[in-house]
Computed example of a mutant assay.
Amino acid sequence: MTASPSPTGVFDPRPLTDPVDRAAVRAHAAARRERGASTGGFRMPQIVGVILAVVFAGFFVWIGATILSAVLSVFFGMGSGALTDVLLVLVGVGIPVLAIAAFVGAVVVIVYRTYFGSAARAYRLDRFAQANGMSFVGEVSAPPLPGMIFSLGRARTADDVLRGERPRWVEFGNYRYTTGSGKNSRTHRWGYVAVKLDTPLPHIVLDAVGNNGLFGSNLPQSFEKEQRLGLEGDFDRYFSLYCPTGYERDALYLFTPDVMARFIDNAAALDVEIVDDWLFLYSHRPFSTLDPATWAWLFSAVGALLDKLDQWARWRDDRLAAERAAGAAGAPAHDSLPFATPLEGLRPPPGVAAPGKRLRRRFSWLSIVAVVGLVLFWLLEVVWNAL
Score class of each variant (00 low, 15 high):
residue 1 M to W: 10
residue 3 A to K: 00
residue 4 S to W: 00
residue 4 S to Y: 00
residue 20 V to A: 14
residue 28 H to A: 12
residue 34 E to A: 15
residue 37 A to N: 13
residue 39 T to D: 15
residue 51 I to Y: 12
residue 63 I to W: 07
residue 64 G to D: 06
residue 69 S to G: 06
residue 70 A to H: 11
residue 78 M to P: 04
residue 79 G to T: 00
residue 80 S to R: 00
residue 84 T to K: 06
residue 92 G to D: 05
residue 100 I to K: 09
residue 104 V to N: 04
residue 105 G to S: 05
residue 120 A to E: 13
residue 122 A to P: 05
residue 132 N to V: 01
residue 136 F to D: 07
residue 139 E to A: 10
residue 146 P to Q: 03
residue 153 G to R: 04
residue 165 E to H: 07
residue 168 R to H: 02
residue 170 V to W: 00
residue 173 G to H: 08
residue 177 Y to V: 08
residue 179 T to L: 04
residue 180 G to V: 00
residue 189 R to L: 12
residue 203 H to I: 05
residue 205 V to N: 05
residue 209 V to H: 06
residue 210 G to W: 10
residue 213 G to S: 01
residue 217 S to L: 07
residue 220 P to L: 09
residue 234 D to V: 11
residue 239 F to L: 03
residue 241 L to F: 04
residue 243 C to H: 14
residue 245 T to Y: 05
residue 253 Y to W: 09
residue 259 V to K: 04
residue 260 M to P: 11
residue 275 V to P: 01
residue 281 L to E: 03
residue 282 Y to M: 04
residue 287 F to T: 09
residue 292 P to I: 00
residue 293 A to E: 13
residue 306 L to M: 05
residue 319 R to G: 12
residue 341 T to M: 15
residue 345 G to N: 13
residue 355 P to S: 02
residue 357 K to M: 13
residue 360 R to Y: 09
residue 360 R to Q: 14
residue 362 R to E: 15
residue 372 V to P: 01
residue 377 F to R: 09
